[in-house]
Amino acid sequence: MHTRPPLPPFTRESAIEKIRLAEDAWNSRDPARIGLAYSLGTRWRNRAEFVDGREAAVALLERKWTRELDYRLIKELWAFDGARIAVRFAYEWRDDSGQWFRSYGNENWEFGDDGLMAVRLASINDRPIAASERKFHWPQGRRPDDHPGLSELGL
Protein backbone atom coordinates (compact mmCIF):
# COMPACT_ATOMS: atom_id res chain seq x y z
CA MET A 1 0.00 0.00 0.00
CA HIS A 2 1.37 3.42 -1.00
CA THR A 3 1.34 5.94 1.87
CA ARG A 4 1.82 9.69 1.95
CA PRO A 5 3.12 10.76 5.40
CA PRO A 6 2.34 12.38 7.66
CA LEU A 7 -0.57 10.03 8.32
CA PRO A 8 -3.74 10.61 10.32
CA PRO A 9 -4.65 11.03 13.06
CA PHE A 10 -2.94 14.41 12.91
CA THR A 11 -1.23 16.31 15.68
CA ARG A 12 -0.79 20.06 15.41
CA GLU A 13 2.78 19.52 14.21
CA SER A 14 1.90 16.84 11.64
CA ALA A 15 -1.04 18.92 10.33
CA ILE A 16 1.30 21.89 9.83
CA GLU A 17 3.80 19.61 8.07
CA LYS A 18 1.05 18.22 5.80
CA ILE A 19 -0.05 21.75 4.90
CA ARG A 20 3.50 22.88 4.09
CA LEU A 21 4.04 19.84 1.88
CA ALA A 22 0.82 20.68 0.02
CA GLU A 23 1.84 24.34 -0.32
CA ASP A 24 5.23 23.35 -1.69
CA ALA A 25 3.67 20.98 -4.20
CA TRP A 26 1.11 23.54 -5.41
CA ASN A 27 3.84 26.18 -5.73
CA SER A 28 5.65 23.80 -8.08
CA ARG A 29 2.69 24.15 -10.46
CA ASP A 30 3.31 20.54 -11.51
CA PRO A 31 -0.14 18.92 -11.76
CA ALA A 32 1.24 15.37 -12.06
CA ARG A 33 3.35 15.79 -8.90
CA ILE A 34 0.43 17.35 -7.01
CA GLY A 35 -1.91 14.60 -8.14
CA LEU A 36 0.15 11.97 -6.30
CA ALA A 37 -1.06 13.39 -2.97
CA TYR A 38 -4.69 12.55 -3.81
CA SER A 39 -6.47 9.20 -3.73
CA LEU A 40 -7.51 7.69 -7.07
CA GLY A 41 -11.13 8.36 -6.12
CA THR A 42 -10.58 11.81 -4.63
CA ARG A 43 -13.58 14.14 -4.65
CA TRP A 44 -13.15 17.90 -4.97
CA ARG A 45 -15.31 20.97 -4.90
CA ASN A 46 -13.14 23.75 -6.28
CA ARG A 47 -15.11 26.98 -6.48
CA ALA A 48 -18.24 25.88 -8.37
CA GLU A 49 -16.55 22.94 -10.10
CA PHE A 50 -17.02 19.38 -8.85
CA VAL A 51 -14.28 16.87 -9.61
CA ASP A 52 -14.26 13.10 -9.19
CA GLY A 53 -10.97 11.23 -9.35
CA ARG A 54 -7.27 11.99 -9.47
CA GLU A 55 -7.15 12.30 -13.26
CA ALA A 56 -9.92 14.92 -13.24
CA ALA A 57 -8.14 16.83 -10.42
CA VAL A 58 -4.90 16.87 -12.45
CA ALA A 59 -6.82 18.12 -15.50
CA LEU A 60 -8.35 20.92 -13.39
CA LEU A 61 -4.86 21.97 -12.26
CA GLU A 62 -3.56 21.94 -15.84
CA ARG A 63 -6.40 24.30 -16.86
CA LYS A 64 -5.87 26.45 -13.76
CA TRP A 65 -2.27 27.31 -14.56
CA THR A 66 -2.95 28.18 -18.18
CA ARG A 67 -4.87 31.20 -16.90
CA GLU A 68 -3.39 31.85 -13.43
CA LEU A 69 0.12 33.02 -14.32
CA ASP A 70 3.02 33.71 -11.91
CA TYR A 71 1.12 31.84 -9.19
CA ARG A 72 2.41 31.96 -5.60
CA LEU A 73 0.55 30.43 -2.66
CA ILE A 74 0.64 30.48 1.14
CA LYS A 75 -1.42 28.03 3.23
CA GLU A 76 -2.01 28.15 6.98
CA LEU A 77 -3.57 25.79 9.50
CA TRP A 78 -7.03 26.75 10.71
CA ALA A 79 -8.07 23.57 12.56
CA PHE A 80 -7.55 19.81 12.59
CA ASP A 81 -9.18 16.70 14.04
CA GLY A 82 -8.36 13.07 13.37
CA ALA A 83 -8.12 12.66 9.59
CA ARG A 84 -9.35 16.18 8.77
CA ILE A 85 -7.52 19.47 8.33
CA ALA A 86 -9.04 22.91 7.71
CA VAL A 87 -6.77 25.37 5.89
CA ARG A 88 -6.96 29.01 4.99
CA PHE A 89 -4.91 30.28 2.10
CA ALA A 90 -4.13 33.16 -0.21
CA TYR A 91 -2.40 33.16 -3.55
CA GLU A 92 -1.38 35.83 -6.02
CA TRP A 93 -1.45 35.51 -9.77
CA ARG A 94 -1.94 37.54 -12.91
CA ASP A 95 -4.00 36.96 -16.00
CA ASP A 96 -2.70 37.21 -19.57
CA SER A 97 -3.63 40.92 -19.70
CA GLY A 98 -1.31 41.65 -16.73
CA GLN A 99 -4.07 42.19 -14.13
CA TRP A 100 -2.97 40.90 -10.72
CA PHE A 101 -5.28 39.14 -8.28
CA ARG A 102 -5.11 37.89 -4.74
CA SER A 103 -7.32 34.87 -4.24
CA TYR A 104 -8.45 34.08 -0.70
CA GLY A 105 -9.94 30.82 0.39
CA ASN A 106 -10.61 28.02 2.79
CA GLU A 107 -10.18 24.32 2.24
CA ASN A 108 -11.50 21.36 4.17
CA TRP A 109 -9.43 18.23 3.66
CA GLU A 110 -10.14 14.62 4.60
CA PHE A 111 -7.48 11.91 4.37
CA GLY A 112 -7.53 8.15 4.16
CA ASP A 113 -5.43 6.02 6.48
CA ASP A 114 -2.75 6.04 3.73
CA GLY A 115 -2.34 9.83 4.03
CA LEU A 116 -3.78 10.48 0.56
CA MET A 117 -6.38 13.20 0.38
CA ALA A 118 -9.80 11.72 -0.32
CA VAL A 119 -11.86 14.92 -0.12
CA ARG A 120 -10.95 18.55 -0.87
CA LEU A 121 -13.63 21.22 -0.49
CA ALA A 122 -12.40 24.68 -1.51
CA SER A 123 -14.16 28.04 -1.38
CA ILE A 124 -12.21 30.77 -3.17
CA ASN A 125 -12.73 34.50 -3.86
CA ASP A 126 -10.61 36.60 -6.22
CA ARG A 127 -9.76 40.24 -5.55
CA PRO A 128 -8.10 42.36 -8.26
CA ILE A 129 -4.99 44.10 -6.91
CA ALA A 130 -2.45 46.52 -8.32
CA ALA A 131 1.04 45.13 -8.92
CA SER A 132 2.23 47.46 -6.13
CA GLU A 133 -0.08 45.65 -3.65
CA ARG A 134 1.56 42.27 -4.17
CA LYS A 135 3.05 40.64 -1.09
CA PHE A 136 4.34 37.35 -2.53
CA HIS A 137 7.63 38.14 -4.29
CA TRP A 138 9.76 35.02 -3.96
CA PRO A 139 11.11 33.29 -7.09
CA GLN A 140 8.75 30.77 -8.68
CA GLY A 141 8.62 27.58 -6.63
CA ARG A 142 8.79 26.85 -2.90
CA ARG A 143 8.15 29.75 -0.53
CA PRO A 144 11.38 30.50 1.37
CA ASP A 145 11.32 29.43 5.01
CA ASP A 146 11.98 33.01 6.16
CA HIS A 147 9.08 34.48 4.12
CA PRO A 148 6.21 35.61 6.36
CA GLY A 149 3.03 33.52 6.47
CA LEU A 150 -0.52 34.80 6.17
CA SER A 151 -0.89 35.90 9.79
CA GLU A 152 2.42 37.77 9.73
CA LEU A 153 1.36 39.53 6.50
CA GLY A 154 -1.96 40.56 8.02
CA LEU A 155 -3.89 38.48 5.51
Rank of each mutant, 00 (worst) to 15 (best):
R67Q: 14
R43A: 10
A37F: 02
D52H: 12
G149R: 09
Y104L: 15
P5Q: 05
N108S: 09
G112N: 06
P6D: 12
F10N: 04
E133D: 07
R120P: 01
R143G: 07
R54H: 01
W109Y: 08
A83T: 01
D146F: 09
F50N: 10
E23Q: 14
G98M: 05
L61I: 01
R134A: 02
W65L: 04
A83E: 02
W93L: 09
N108H: 09
S103H: 06
V51M: 06
E107N: 10
R72W: 05
R29Q: 15
A57Q: 09
K64R: 15
R120Q: 14
R134Y: 00
G112K: 03
E62W: 00
G115N: 01
I74R: 15
L73V: 14
L150H: 01
D96A: 14
P9F: 07
L153K: 09
G41T: 05
P5T: 10
E133H: 05
P148H: 02
L36R: 14
R12H: 12
Y71A: 11
T3K: 12
V58M: 12
F136D: 06
V87M: 09
E110T: 12
G149S: 07
S123H: 15
K75L: 07
R43E: 04
P8D: 03
R143K: 15
L150Q: 02
P8G: 11
S28F: 04
A79E: 05
R33P: 00
P139W: 02
D52G: 10
A122K: 11
G53S: 00
P31S: 05
T42W: 00
E107H: 11
A83F: 00
S39H: 06
R54E: 00
F80S: 00
N46I: 13
D52R: 14
D52Y: 13
M1Q: 14
G154T: 12
P144Y: 04
A22E: 06
A22W: 03
S151H: 13
V119Q: 13
E107L: 07
Q140E: 08
R120L: 14
D114S: 05
T66Q: 15
L40S: 11
N46M: 13
R47V: 09
D52A: 15
Q99K: 15
W26H: 15
G98W: 03
E17M: 15
L121K: 10
V119K: 09
S14A: 05
R127A: 04
H147Q: 14
I74T: 13
F10L: 01
R84L: 03
W78F: 05
E13Q: 11
A131V: 11
E17K: 13
P31V: 00
Y38G: 00
G98P: 06
V87N: 10
F111D: 00
P139A: 08
V87A: 11
A131D: 05
E107W: 08
I85M: 02
R94T: 01
R45M: 11
E107G: 10
I74D: 11
E17Q: 15
D126L: 12
S39A: 15
R47T: 06
R63S: 07
